[in-house]
Design a protein around this nucleic acid. Structure first.
Lengths: 345, 345
DNA sequence: TTGAAAGCGGTACCAA
DNA sequence: TTGGTACCGCTTTCAA
């Protein structure tokens, strides 16, 4: 393992000049630069990042904190972040902090305080009470993916709008009995709450507030499946349209419907949010978001913020794009038990 | 930001003593230790890991390199690794190196050479030609998850055995026309090749070699779906049993079967390998592996190796556990087109 | 059991 | 444009 002194010696210059030639900071003649670079290559020189960080205060490392890596959306964002960081030559330190684990507590109490990163990206974090203080105490540039676009440094889709447009899509197909599925009281996230609000306002605007109904479930495929098996079994109250908090829940609902012999979309239309990698296989109509791009955007915003901490940090609210597949279709009033009990308009 | 000198001053001791008290290396009286710890707490002292690493050569950071984080198995292993590392107070640097990307090339050419980690865990990496040399050049302890258990420092299930037992399960149910689905020529991984071998040997041992058939597909849910729609459509040649390279492929096959009106398991029995989080929702019979445990085991092996580099590094081959759900059942000879053309034994 | 002092491997200031 | 040198913050001899 040769150090910069070895490189300097071989190139016949001082350590200082070697450093300047290699980092590109300060004046070096083209000639000496070439000499130094040759020497470095000959010795397979790799700078010690510890030594460099110690004096510059820069780690060339970005921390990413998220509540899981096993959810499709989060994993996609993570890959977008990784790609962008690799392009910039920056390392990625992962803090996978599942709510309620001792690991999460340690991350907030110890790991973040070490500040082994120049900046932090929080993805879908939903910090609880004292975690927020910890985050603020870190005193490092930070960007959030998923969250309230009114907060500075937040990248997300307009969740309220997504919920609204998913609902309007079904209303446009003639549905009135439309339910929303997703979210449970202890575990509400910012985004599913917003999507529910969008659903509610679309229903209200269409004069369908009395038909609005919210079914709680875990925001996972098995969660959506379990809840759907329950409420779809009740034939009398079964809605004809279903707005789902996300695609994983929607796919769970579709699987449940099949198991119960309910045809999608003739008996039940289902719309999700995400454009999950499985959405196509399930022919799922959905409001697509691009998590990978969100991750890459987060990196760009963060690096800009690090480069110029005094500049205001923008937020980015991306629109979701409606992709119509065949899990939604016009309501079939004749064959619907719930419509049979409703007076026609 | 106070440093160790501040702590030392406040505690009324020297830097050296403060360091000893805080790190636990060297003799310090219980009394001074307490004094130093109090001072550290009072000042919210956090040691600079750069400074410490510079002198000790230890980074207290582990690198994890894997070809993706969006596959269920890999994400689960990653969370197992993260949990174990958090327990030990170690950071995790992620190198997500998707095959064929420029990012992957950079990881192998630049990032790994920086050695910003005390050890490396490679998960399902399948390094290609020159990548292997790069890996060896790193000269840091390394453990592999997924791979050949004959190589030292490898954790995996016995893939051959898993393929064999999945096949034997179907044979035991009376199936003879059993196909294997998964793996395509350019992208063979070590594990799906081994599972195919297990399938082949089970077929041969049961005298069913003539019925063996291998269907190629991408090792993903959409890949399994697409291939299945194709080959299940050919009623005359349709097998009654299907051994899948992994659960994602198996679930894709089940979805394809449903779409084609093929009943599972009465028309087609499907068995996978993994016990994916969706396996239960699809009632999938599978050979379960525990990726989270594999990740945690990898950390333990790696830390032991780092602590004592001269000790031999063991390998761990875990057995997969058969979980029978309702995607497999006895063959129904009467209703099977393919069986109709076969003489009974 | 403690303190003084020498680095770890770079960067950046200042003078030449 | 280059070289000498102090120093980043900590650990670790070595001597007391």
């Amino acid at each position: 393992m040769s150090g910069i002194s070895d490189v300097a010696r071989l190139a016949g210059v001082s350590k200082a000049t070697a450093s300047r030639a290699l980092t590109g900071n300060g004046y070096v003649s083209a000639e000496t630069r070439a000499k130094v670079q040759d020497a470095a290559r000959a010795l397979d020189y790799v700078a010690s990042s510890n030594a460099a960080s110690l004096v510059t205060g820069r780690t060339r490392n970005i921390g990413v904190i998220m509540p899981s890596v096993t959810r499709w959306f989060l994993a996609e964002v993570l890959e977008g972040i990784q790609d962008a960081l690799l392009d910039h030559g920056l390392d990625l330190t992962l803090y996978d902090s599942r709510p309620g684990t001792t690991g999460r507590a340690r991350i907030f109490d110890d790991f973040l305080a070490r500040k082994r990163f120049d900046g932090l990206i929080a993805v879908g974090l939903e910090p609880q009470d004292n975690e927020i203080e910890r985050l603020q105490a870190i005193d490092r540039p930070m960007i959030s993916v998923v969250g309230d676009a009114n907060d500075p440094g937040t990248i997300s889709i307009d969740d309220r709008d997504a919920g609204r447009r998913a609902t309007e899509h079904l209303i446009g197909l003639g549905h009135r009995h439309i339910a929303f599925i997703g979210g449970t009281e202890p575990h509400w996230a910012h985004w599913d709450r917003r999507r529910l609000e969008g659903y509610m306002s679309a229903m209200a605007d269409a004069g369908l507030a009395e038909y609005a109904r919210h079914i709680e479930c875990d925001i996972t495929l098995p969660g959506g499946y379990a809840a759907s098996v329950d409420f779809l079994g009740d034939t009398k109250r079964r809605p004809t349209g279903l707005v789902c908090a996300c695609d994983e829940v929607a796919i769970g609902a579709i699987i449940a419907a099949r198991r119960l012999g309910i045809q999608v979309p003739s008996d039940l239309s289902v719309v999700g949010v995400d454009d999950h990698e499985f959405a196509d296989v399930f022919s799922l109509t959905t409001l697509a978001q691009l998590p990978r791009e969100q991750g890459m955007t987060a990196v760009e915003l963060l690096l800009r913020h690090i480069a110029d901490p005094s500049a205001p940090v923008p937020s980015v609210a991306l629109p979701a794009r409606l992709i119509v597949r065949s899990s939604t279709g016009p309501v079939d009033r004749a064959s619907s038990a719930i419509e049979a009990g409703t007076r026609p308009r």
